[in-house]
Amino acid sequence: MIIYFKRAIKDILDHRFLNAVTIATISIAILIASAFALFFVNANAIVNSWKQGIRIMVYLKPNSSELKVADIKRKIEGMKGVNNVRFISNIEALERLKNQMKRQSSLLDDLQENPLPDAFEVRLTDDFQNQDKVETLAARLESLSQVDEVEYGQVWLGRFTNILNLFRLTGYAMGALFFAATVLIVANTIRLVLYSRREEVEIMRLVGATDGFIRAPFYIEGLIQGALGGIIGLAALFVLFVFISSNVDKSLTSSLFAIRFLSWGAFLGILICSMFVGWMGCFLSLKQFLKQ
């Protein structure tokens, strides 16, 4: 094993230029593909955080009795598409309002009586977060006795989710495309290395070397190329990320959400993918070369 490793390292050094080209190619592919992944991860996180805001507010007529409130709550909970229901009394609503107004809250202190209605905050299941279904549900809520008014918004997010899904599919397709292209490029450089060493390979066979013995260092070479390419690509992405996020954060996003880098899991996944690319490239060219 160690001897294969030594041979592989020596091979890489002996063919510096070819190997540098291969590693650069893998790096660029990994950079583009993982930039895509990074964008997707963040877009997804943002949409999810916004989605928390998709809800229907159901305002009750004034002076509803506790019994009736409990009854309506049960009815709403029984409806399709309802995830959970929270009762917000007019007292709690006023507290919230005061909190939100902060400095101007003294205005509210002078109120003789609470002008706000009791309300239910209704959160929806995932499959109900689109325009049609929200409208139907809202109509049914409005038809309940004791319900004064129904309010909803941010339905456009549902459409946004669809776009994001389309985006995800495009991402997968592009990933597959990059994978195939990089494998072919790696296969091609390994083929060039093999070609430049066909005499040596032939001699090794003549003195009794097995195909496995001849192949092993090439596979290790492919794995090393993949690993180096992956690390360089991800490092470049990180530099780019730090640069962009330090510029964007201040102006745009701030408290709403923080742009994140890829998780360690994703990082490792991409690295393994990249090593697999190197291995696969070797596999293809060796298969062809040693069959002759």
Binding site: R205, L206, V207, G208, A209, T210, D211
Partner: peptide, 15 residues
């Protein structure tokens, strides 16, 4: 094919 190396190890060839 995979026995060729075994055969070749029986030989020492001076080309």
């Amino acid at each position: 094919h995979n026995r060729i190396p075994i055969l070749r190890r029986k030989f020492g060839v001076i080309f």
